[in-house]
Design a protein around this nucleic acid. Structure first.
Lengths: 315, 315
DNA sequence: CTGAAAGCGCTTACAG
DNA sequence: CTGAAAGCGCTTACAG
């Protein structure tokens, strides 16, 4: 199996390699006749241009890195798949990196991606103040985050409006007659955790609810911690309002929420749309638009999905 | 942000770029003094060698393609993650491609990966006779499959021994006193489906079981089809042996099998080990060993995991 | 142990 | 519309 180069094609067609290059790059300044001749030879010969050689000159690899905590987590496998699909249609390939939430591994990946000359990096779960990303950003490599954002005002992101989401949840409970509403929070090193908590506090003020600080418990996205928090809440002198049982709203419409035996009322995040948007906007507004310095800062509206775990208060 | 090249480092160190290159590539023929000086300058300056330029000469990209049906399927997200992790430790990056089982998309990806000059391709779900892969293989690009194999005797693979797996299952049922044993098969275009069926037929002969052809029903990995097949089996004049209900063995120890309300006895495949092996053997035995033409053909032993869906026959 | 030179397979002004 | 030449940032014989 001999590997063909652009020179082989040029010789065979009786033209210079410049002309072959123009045909490959869809340059208009080639006569129809020459173009067709070359195109034919390329097809017949099975010649494939070497992207490596091309990248060396153009400084574009058409490769993007995706840094996520864990592809086994359904949120990330679903969004990764859509990101990959969207990028492919735009001519890009994706290198997926699982950090397992370890910042040393994230740094390892950042170095790998820099050395591989990726055109940019998408982050799926940034900590609000990640000094390593700030340092890396100084290299001038374009990046964007989804699901979570950096606190930096000039950062690019596509996220769900977490403040609004919690307000939807609180409003729903109030509409059902509840007044004592508690909140089990996520970790505060992510914008998701920070903003949902902020949304809860704002909602309490808007609706004039009990400001009892016991009604906010740290759950930390851990089953165990959340279970402890729940017990604390139930044993409060004035526990959260109780209908038949307790009205309960989750966040992120994970598959388990709709399970027949669970039927959790939930705030639903448009994760598929988010994934498509982050990939498209990153390529179109940032990577292919380097001169313009346009910021991408998108907050998607969450939705309330009412199922069986919330109901009217029964006094 | 100015981009440094090997020439900048060379000038700064007062040596030629050849010497810098040797240091970067850990060539021994450099004096300790020069080496340390250069290493220091590299560190201080934040210089990162350009892998693209290097690849153009070495013809190695240290990139591997992984072609799977769907990263959302837990089997593939779990194995992909391990493959990626294993490859990273060996110095390789991974481009994951989801075909959704569509051969046109697989071809698209094959072309992309060829153009990107990947060092090899790992396939997660090949059809036994995939003419496109055969055609592609003629390009001389190394490849290997896992989970499923090509019928081609000279192909590389790491799979589970599916024939043996079914035999384990049949033997277990016989040990429990069953004699009328039925089998709901998978699609025959995969080695998994073919070999499990073959294993079932061989087991019937070995244990002198009823050769009734009604006891083999096509399930096609589809819930609906399998349900039809089950009804057909139950309504047979002589149905499969019935204890309290029916003894049932699944294949592939998916998470649902161990669910508290399911407790399916199952043939378990060492998928994590399989993933690690396919990545390691591919790099060590095939990619880094091109001259030797060594075949990698590994069949891992499956295990029987006994839970609650199988029990002694009660006459 | 070190350097000068050639070359990997392309693209891109420049000139015609 | 087309070609000759320079160059992208490295590696690698070859020579000393």
């Amino acid at each position: 199996m001999i590997k063909l180069t652009i020179i082989d094609i040029a010789n065979f067609a009786g033209v210079s390699k410049s002309t072959v290059s123009r045909v490959i790059n869809k340059d208009k300044h080639v006569s129809k006749k020459t173009r067709e001749k070359i195109l034919n030879i390329i097809k017949e010969s099975g010649y494939v241009p070497d992207n490596i050689a091309r990248s060396l000159i153009t400084k574009k690899t058409y490769t993007i890195g995706l840094i996520i905590p864990d592809i086994i987590n359904p949120f990330y496998s679903e969004t990764s798949k859509i990101i990959e699909d969207t990028l492919r249609k735009l001519g890009y390939s994706l290198i997926i990196c699982n950090t397992n939430n370890r910042s040393t591994l994230q740094n390892t990946y950042l170095n790998i991606l820099i050395q591989r000359k990726v055109d940019g990096i998408i982050f799926g779960s940034v900590k609000t103040n990640d000094s390593n990303i700030v340092k890396f950003a100084e290299r001038g490599l374009p990046y964007i985050t989804y699901h979570r954002r950096l606190s930096d005002k000039k950062s690019n992101f596509v996220i769900s409006d977490d403040i609004d989401g919690i307000k939807l949840a609180v409003k729903h409970l109030i509409d059902l007659g509840h007044r004592n509403i508690a909140y089990i929070s996520g970790p505060k090193l992510f914008s998701t955790g920070i903003n949902r908590l902020r949304g809860f506090i704002e909602a309490r003020n808007i609706f004039n609810l009990n400001n009892n600080s016991d009604f906010i418990q740290e759950g930390g996205y851990s089953e165990n911690k959340s279970w402890q928090a729940t017990k604390t809440l139930i044993n409060l002198p004035i526990p959260p309002t109780v209908p038949k049982d307790i009205s309960l709203i989750g966040y992120d419409n994970i598959n388990l929420a709709s399970h027949a035996r669970i039927q959790l009322t939930t705030i639903s995040v448009a994760k598929k749309y988010m994934a498509k948007q982050v990939a498209e906007l990153f390529v179109k507004k940032i990577i292919n638009n380097k001169h313009k310095l346009e910021l991408v800062q998108v907050k998607l509206k969450p939705k309330l999905v009412i199922r069986k775990t919330t109901s009217k208060i029964s006094i």
